[in-house]
Simulated assay, not measured.
Amino acid sequence: MTDASLQARLEEGIQALGLTLPPEAVPRLLAYRSLLERWNGAYNLTAVRDPAEQITRHLLDSLAILPHVRGRTLADLGTGPGLPGIPLAIAAPGRQVLLVDANGKKVRFLREAIRTLGLEGVSAVQSRVEDVEGRFDCVTARAFASLADMLAWGGHLLADDGCWLAMKGRLPEEELAQVPPAFAVRAVHALDVPGLAAPRHLVVLGHAGRETGTGC
């Protein structure tokens, strides 16, 4: 596809999601996709090679959870090449975003993307999730691990009134039943990602016994 076709696909998808983004968001999102494509050959950042599919399966899939993101700080765990953290940071600037991944090559890409795209307030750390310190209003995880495992490894990162957003494909019925007792499922949303026929779900969790002050 041409650059114009990719831009049209992205803009149509954003409109279908009902989102209003800053004027600079679309060019930055396209620049991020282009950078991802350039680095992918050497660093094997994503198995999705087709540019149009990258728009759908990476950018629009990440942006689909934007209405559920709350708070002033966000940690994206097992972010890989920055998904959903970088699209979310581009779409809603001003939030402090920490991108976490244990893979050194991916973190080198993340740091180059942050520098190239001029993403203020965004940083990347190479670390196992369980070794990361801090408390965050919102924690995101996309195809990272089971709900039980991700909460066991990273539950300490969620602020008392924070909101955990776990991105899943099919509805993980068995995983929902195995959520640790210290946490509670607040909601499960079926996501309609424009151009994507595969099922997508968002599981929203918080600390048990607390209402989330961030409005999740």
Rank of each mutant, 00 (worst) to 15 (best):
W39D: 03
N40D: 09
N40S: 10
G41C: 03
G41T: 05
Y43D: 08
Y43G: 09
N44R: 14
N44S: 13
L45S: 02
A47M: 01
D50V: 06
P51L: 05
E53N: 07
E53W: 00
E53F: 06
Q54C: 01
T56Y: 09
L59G: 00
L60T: 09
D61F: 12
S62F: 08
I65F: 10
I65Q: 09
L66M: 12
P67I: 06
H68L: 12
H68V: 01
H68P: 02
V69P: 00
G71S: 08
G71E: 03
T73V: 06
L74V: 02
L74P: 12
A75K: 05
A75F: 07
D76S: 02
G78I: 08
T79I: 07
G80Q: 04
P81R: 02
G82R: 13
G82W: 06
G82H: 05
G85S: 07
G85A: 04
I86Q: 06
L88Q: 00
L88N: 09
A89K: 08
A92I: 12
A92G: 01
R95G: 01
Q96H: 14
L98W: 10
L98Q: 15
L98N: 10
L98C: 04
L98I: 13
L99Q: 05
V100L: 07
D101V: 12
A102Y: 01
G104V: 08
G104K: 07
G104L: 11
K105G: 08
K105A: 14
K105L: 00
E112Q: 14
R115I: 01
T116W: 11
L117N: 11
G118T: 09
G118D: 00
G118S: 08
G118Y: 03
L119K: 08
V122D: 03
S123D: 09
A124V: 03
V125L: 15
S127A: 15
V129A: 14
V132D: 13
V132L: 03
V132T: 05
V132C: 02
G134R: 05
G134M: 08
D137L: 14
V139P: 03
A141G: 11
R142K: 15
S146T: 12
S146Q: 11
